[in-house]
Amino acid sequence: MKNELLTLEEAAERIAAGAVMSIAGEANLLAQLPKGQWIGGSTVYFMTAQGGAVERTRLFCSIFPEGTQATARYVPIEALSSIPEGYKSGGVSLVIIPAFSQAHARFAQDGADYPHLFDQPLLGWISGVHLEEIGVVKPVVFDGATGQRHEDGAVLLHILTAHAAEPKLDIINIFQQGTDEDLVFTFPEVGFGATTAQVHGKDVNLAAYLTEKAVDTRLPLVANYAGAMINVSFQNVDLAAGKVDFYAPVFPGVEYRLAAPQGDYAQSFSAQAGAGGAAMLSCNCILNYLYGALEGKTTGGYTGPVTFGEIAYILLNQTLVKLELAA
């Protein structure tokens, strides 16, 4: 696996030569690429070898080894549960979904229930835009097989690598569950927003409670999924409306703890990531980029798009997702 920041012309050449690629960048650049074995999504934020950066003139290309076979396809909202039907035996699948789309919400809420979703590595990200363009410019995804741009649905790249590589999908979450028992929440229903949560078995208005406790909402809620730490990030606390919005859904039956305070994000990623990352497909979260002030800082050897949500089987927040094609 090779990660490169390429000009439009260089990326087009790779596609024409038959390269299998995941491509991130400005939508107007992606729209000019030729058809081929690729999928793409919009973002202008990247972790590069030199550190976090805004990049509008080049495309971040993750290029799979020569001989890799791939099928790119578009899946509309109503067919999202068919994502695993494209899995290639022994392969891996990439998925990109536009932020704020119906597919984003549907996949986040229902994805874990799709039949056979967990049977092989599925990773990807939520495409975005420059933060100053939210509400003005729509995040988009591209199906390289047709060259079509989509503002909703999902694009998939089902991949089978040529050598006996065993794809290993994992996450790096620098957050741990905090220990304050007053900041342990459960929710009565699934949703990207909540008015009521339970704390110590009693209903509270979540917005009022977070405000009263002066909770640092740059820290995510962290749930323990059988040993995997899964974050849900705060989007907005509206005290007047009594409502809290999240960047991923909360689910009933899950206990969420506010994350323990975080020091230096870049240092935490480097410490957990070690020396690896250069030859992996990875993406990291825009909230880590912002809250961790990652512009100009590196996260170990990991490079890739900075995204409006990460996918490792399910939608994640404030998490680095990585795919290793081990020899």
Binding site: L169, D170, I171, A226
Partner: peptide, 16 residues
């Protein structure tokens, strides 16, 4: 109980 040695897919499925 956690399954610390399990791959991510198994943890997520078991949790669900």
């Amino acid at each position: 109980d956690d399954i610390p040695s399990a791959p991510l897919a198994l943890k997520l499925l078991v949790n669900r």
